[in-house]
Amino acid sequence: MSDESHIEPTTMQNSEPQSTAKTRLIIALTVLGIALSYFLFTAFQSAQVYYYTVGEVVTNKPHAELVRVNGNLVADSFTRISGETEARFELTDGSTKLLMIYDGIIPDLFFNPHSEIVAEGQYYEEGTFHVDDILVKCPSKYTGEVTEST
């Protein structure tokens, strides 16, 4: 009940300062819009090239920066000396191959012939890639076990 009596006069006298309220609203929204677009821009810039191909890494030789490489595992290239955790394998984009050195846990689908591999790490001058983390990119086709024959 008391709310009503308070609201009435304020809405009446609001006609004058309403323009300042409006400009304040516009300023707030502009700031918000700029912040949002800046956020979008920076987010995209870092994510724009989520990974490079093997060929791009070998030709560009990205030095002293963390990059991701995408490629297929070269069949039978995976070697690991028994008792040690360091593994070596090759990734290929079809034409170029790159030697990977990795010390860590291998994900479930790493050896699956349908998987692509995304390796996060650093490229070294001598032509090897030191992997920090491995991600497996799965095919976006899903099929039951029976129909899979190709």
Partner: peptide
């Protein structure tokens, strides 16, 4: 279980 990580800063995810 599929990619091997809980999260990655990929464009779709980001």
């Amino acid at each position: 279980p599929t990619w091997g990580v809980w999260w990655t800063w990929d464009p779709v995810l980001t």
